[in-house]
Each structure stands twice: as structure tokens, then as C-alpha cells.
Design a protein around this nucleic acid. Structure first.
Lengths: 351, 351
DNA sequence: CGTGGTTGCTAAAACGATTGAGCGGACTCA
DNA sequence: TGAGTCCGCTCAATCGTTTTAGCAACCACG
């Protein structure tokens, strides 16, 4: 059964194509209501909906946005960015064409070209984790960077405020009464940009609280995995009793999971003997840990929304040209309590 | 800078639009190489690529496929299905338009309509987890179901072979020497279809091994989470020593994670005191458990590929009309060993 | 009664590609 | 020499919309 075209509706209503188009798009107020109703009835009866391809050709806008990402869709990390983008797109009658490049520059180039050929109205260039990237060539004018920023600027971009997030995490620990707080960091050759930022937030709060940073408490795992977190935490627990930390701020939730393992092997109970806060709020790891992990959430959904709103032109960045920093809220679960010896505020237990 | 059109190339090469099109699409062998080269040079010089929208209108094919899903893209579960679909689509020069309906039937209806309006060449209807669904109305002829099957048939569908997967899991345990094997199941009001299937596989292997199924060893958690797995496992560990299981087959990896917690609280070491196999192979949980979890993988990537290949017509189902069952391979990590008392085959330790 | 304005609609030209039909010339062959 | 074939290309129609310009009829006004 072939699609019904505008001419079918026109025939059914006894008018011309033009009239049908005019009515369906509310374009010419001069058409009498009676005719309008006749046309609408015919459209409903035939089940007509305009062919978006033909319309796209004529109007030079396809109500379609492209989203190219390194591996966002195929890894469990950042799917919520997609959800945010989708929701906004749908609200504005747009469809999203998704291309996962698997970080292959050639695939990326082809994808951008193909998307341009398909006349997308805007492009979102997304990364799985906060990065600084070389903007690929031939980007459409309407391009927004999501969870990454182009090294040379030139396009709107949104990334998480990792520094402030790091500060939030450590502030939570300080508020619980901790003074010896370690930062469980990564030691990769190219550490994620978030590493330095979260560490900056850590230092900032220590200073704020009048705590002298102890270099011994800044440890590194080889990878951002549970294994990395575990080995780094073991370094900490090997320290003489007096200089051992009472709380850990872990670079991410996976490393925090490793810290749990290390602590458990020493017979330490969380949070009674050791408080831990993570970062990322990865449901599958943070919420399922025992006890559930207090962590700082990456605002993936909100970033996805923001990027899409500016891509569609329904939002203008406060400061176009600047990178938009999205706040990272803390998610309180059960891994923070006052330090063993110190008093702290009992109300903060298990918040 | 406006897009370069075919007429620009024609002008540059001193030929007509037709000739350019003919050359670019290798359609008319009669055009002399010399002219062909002139045209190609002009196309390269101007950076011409055909406008897909115009081509789509004329050719009635957009080289685009739609993928509607309940929540696949926004949850960490099944992103690999997307990867499989993407890879096949790209290999065949197609783009994928993704719509996540959030399980809202109205959104779903609108999405299918919008995709049809955009003249997608095929539609993939995907679910986050293995389900039997009522096929929505007005599906395009070229529709394939992914990780779900329409209750009334009528379209190709691919789902994991959960029964065989369950059998594989239990066979692994039997091979290690276990005889008292529990199934840690879910007890939700609408249990996932996979639950009954995996249980069927479990029973099948017990029968095969001449083991009498013990109803006491079929326990249920309230949810498919770690919490559910933990409470169900506690039931098992409360059993008198003699009737306690030496191995657990858990409905999924999250419940297996809960089983780890329950076991640890009793001072049981995995796999020495208790062997566990999970299901799903969720990287974030299975691989990061201590010890890493032996589990049966859901072949998400392969299913995504299969669905897309039949959607694009580059593969024909062996038995069109039948649901294609995709094999679930076992991923051996460290959570299976011979039972404490029994001997078993030492070679299978820590495989 | 001529002029100008409104009303209700339509014809036709885009948008940018693809493609079947066809044209003028050269060549072949009887 | 005339008919037929091939070569190398172009013309124009087509896909299904949107939209501008404008036609015909009618009315009002001076």
C-alpha cells in the first residue's frame, strides 16, 4: 500500500495541492474555515502525513540532528547524555541520527560528511568522558560539543564542573569531621583531564578548611578500574597508623569499589573505620556496593539537554564562546560517617 | 559558504548535470574515460558530494534505518546491540536514526510515524531485555525485532537463547563436580521471560546429569538486583549444612553480586566454599567482582548485527517466520571451582 | 460605470538529484 | 548511396512538497 501523497488529499477534498499545503501548515488566513475543515477531514480520512524527505528538500531543513560520539552509545558510561539529547529533540519535533565512531578518525570524517549530506540541522559532537579534543575539519556551523571542548574554541561546549565536583566531595568529608583525607587518583600516561580538576577541587577545600595537604595521601592507581583503586588504597592502608587517612576521595566509583575490597581485606568496615566518596554515580557500581557509595554525580542528562537546546537554537549560552560548566551534585548514600576517633556531627551519619 | 551542487560540477567540467550523475554513479559505460576523468576531477576540486535528501526523494530510498527502543540507549544494559547495528549499517552505507521511547506507547507511535515520514529503509524494534511484545500498529514492511519478539509473529526477530544459556551455566558447574546446585531466581509479579527459560535450561542439565532437582534449591529474590540476590542467597545459606548448595546459578550478574555479599557475611570464600555463575556478562559488575564472576554472556553485539543485516536484506533468516535464537557463550573467570568436599577435575579450577 | 480592494483559490516554479528517451554525427555495411 | 548502429552526450520528466505570484469573481465606492 503506497504512501498517501498531498495530491491524494487534494483530490479527496476537491481542491489543489496548494490549498492542502496551505491549510495543513496554517499559512494563509484567507482560506475559509469551511474549506479548511474539508481539507483536514480529507487528510484525516486518508491518513496523510507529509513526506519529510520532500519537505526537507524544499525547505532546506530536515528537522534532524546528528550526534557523533566516540563510544558513548556503546558503553555503559554516558547513555544518559543520549537520553537528554533525545528528550529535547523530541520536544522540538526533531529526530536524532546517531553515529558511534569508535574513536576512529576516518569513520568520524565519513560520518560528519554523511550527516552533512543528509542535511542535518545541527551537529552534536560528544565524548564518553570529559576531554579536550582537536575539532575535526568541516564541522557544520551549528555544532555543539558535549562532554568535551575543542582545543581552539569556536563552538559552544558543555562539560561537567569537575573542579567544583571534587570540592563538593571533599567538603562532604570535611563536614563529617575528617581531617586526614586521601585522594585516590590515576596514574595513566595521559590522565583524564578530570583527574587534575578533581584534585584541584580537593586542594581547594583542604585549604578552605585549613588542612595542610599531605603528599603521602595523594596516591595513584595504574588504571581507573577497581584493580587500580584497590592497589592505590593498599598503599594508604600500609601507612603507619598515625598517618593513615580516615577518609578517601576516589577518582571514580570503580576505583572506590576497589577501595572497598582493599578495606575489607584489612578487616576495615565502611564507613565506620573508613569513609569513602566516589565520583560519577555509576548506578551499577555505586548503588550496588555494600554499603551503597556516596558519590558525586556526573550531570550527563543535563549536559545532553543543554547541548541539544543550544544546537537547536532554543537556548543561547550565557557567554557564547565560553565553555559551559555543569554542576555535579552529590548523591548521599551510606559510605560516609564521622572518623573513628573524632566526634563529628552525628546527624551526618548515613545521610 | 553554500553546498556545492551537481550543477556546479557540471559547469566546472563543461558537461551537463546528467553526465556528472552518470559518471559519479558509474551508470553509463559509454562515457569515454577522458570525460569521466574530467568530471571526477571537477567533483574532487569542488568537493562535491550528492545531497542525500534530493537523492532520497528521487530514488525513494534514504539509506537510513530507524531504531526504536524502549530504553536501550539510556541504560547501561544493552548498548552493545546499538554497536552491532551501527557497525552493520555503516558497512552498508546506512545511517541509523535512534529513538528511545522510554516505554511510552504514545511516544512510540509518534516515533514510528515520524520515521516512516522520513522514509527510512527499514525499522528495528528493540527492547532492553528479552520480551514478548504486542507489535505496534503501522510498522513498515521491513521491520525486525531485536531482543524481543512480536506475540503474533509476522516479522523476523532475534532473541538470546536463554534456555541453552542456562544449560551452559549449569553444565559448567556440573563439570566442576557440583551436584547440589541452586538457582537464584526472581520473584517479580511479571518475571522476565528469561527467568523461566534459564530455569528450563537448569532443569535440563540436572536431568542430563542424573541429579534430582531439589525444590529447596530454587529460591527467589524480590528484585533482579544485588539486594534481591543477597536475600535469596541467605535463604540458601540458612539451610542445614547437609542440604546447602555448593554452587549457585544466579539469574543475572547483579543478583550474583548480592550472592557474593551474602556469602562473605557468612565467612564463605568464593569459589573455594561456594561456586557461582551469573548471567548477562555485565562488564561493570561481573569483571569487577572479587573474584571476577564466571558468567554467561548475552550476545548483544551479535544480535544487533543480525537484526540489522536482515533489516537491510543482506542476510535472510534461515527460517523466516521463526524467531532466531542467538547462542549465549560462557565467559570463564574466577568464581567456579570444584566443591569443597568432592574431588572434581582439578584442571577446571580457575578457568 | 470604472477603479480598486478583497476573497478564494490555483499554476507553476522551486529544492537537487536520477534516468529514460532521444539527437546529431560518425561509422559500417550491403 | 542509404540504412542501420554506435557514440557521446543532453533534455526533460520525475520524486512530493512549499510558496510566490496572480487569476477570476465579486463587492464597494465615488
Amino acid at each position: 500500500m503506497p504512501r498517501v501523497r498531498i495530491s491524494d488529499v487534494a483530490a479527496a477534498a476537491g481542491v489543489s495541492n496548494s490549498t492542502v499545503s496551505l491549510v495543513m501548515n496554517d499559512r494563509d488566513a484567507r482560506i475559509p474555515v469551511e474549506t479548511q475543515e474539508r481539507v483536514r477531514a480529507a487528510a484525516a480520512a486518508t491518513g496523510y502525513t507529509p513526506n519529510s524527505v520532500a519537505r526537507g528538500l524544499r525547505m532546506q531543513t530536515t528537522r534532524t540532528i546528528g550526534l557523533v560520539s566516540d563510544t558513548i552509545a556503546t558503553t555503559p558510561y554516558a547513555g544518559r547524555m543520549l537520553a537528554g539529547a533525545q528528550d529535547v529533540a523530541r520536544q522540538h519535533g526533531h529526530l536524532v541520527i546517531l553515529v558511534d565512531t569508535g574513536d576512529d578518525p576516518e569513520v568520524e570524517r565519513d560520518a560528519i560528511r554523511a550527516l552533512a549530506d543528509h542535511q542535518i540541522d545541527a551537529l552534536i559532537y560528544a565524548c564518553m568522558w570529559h576531554r579536550v579534543v582537536d575539532a575535526p575539519a568541516h564541522l557544520p556551523a551549528r555544532t555543539v560539543f558535549l562532554d568535551c571542548r575543542p582545543v581552539d574554541g569556536g563552538h559552544p561546549a558543555v562539560v561537567p564542573d569537575d573542579r567544583a565536583g571534587g570540592a563538593t566531595a571533599v567538603r562532604e568529608l570535611v563536614a563529617a569531621g575528617h581531617r586526614r583525607i586521601a585522594f585516590v587518583d590515576v596514574d595513566e600516561p595521559n590522565p583524564p583531564i578530570a583527574s587534575a580538576l578533581r584534585f584541584a577541587g580537593y586542594l581547594e577545600v583542604l585549604r578552605e578548611a585549613g588542612i595542610e595537604p599531605d603528599p603521602e595521601l595523594h596516591v595513584h592507581g595504574a588504571t581507573t578500574t577497581a584493580a587500580g583503586g584497590r592497589s592505590a588504597t593498599e598503599l594508604l592502608l600500609d601507612l603507619p597508623e598515625a598517618s593513615r587517612p580516615t577518609a578517601l576521595f576516589c577518582f571514580n566509583d570503580r576505583m572506590a569499589a576497589g577501595a572497598y575490597v582493599a578495606a575489607r581485606h584489612r578487616g576495615l568496615e565502611i564507613p565506620r573505620d573508613l569513609s569513602i566518596v566516589g565520583f560519577d554515580d555509576q548506578q551499577l557500581v555505586a548503588a550496588e556496593l555494600d554499603p551503597p557509595l556516596t558519590t558525586v554525580a556526573l550531570p550527563h542528562y543535563e549536559m545532553g539537554r543543554w547541548a541539544t537546546e543550544v544546537a537547536l537554537g532554543v537556548r543561547t549560552p550565557d557567554d557564547p564562546g565560553a565553555v559551559h560548566l555543569m554542576e555535579c551534585p552529590i548523591i548521599r548514600r551510606g559510605s560516609v560517617s564521622p572518623p573513628p576517633a573524632a566526634g563529628g556531627d552525628p546527624d551526618r551519619r548515613r545521610t
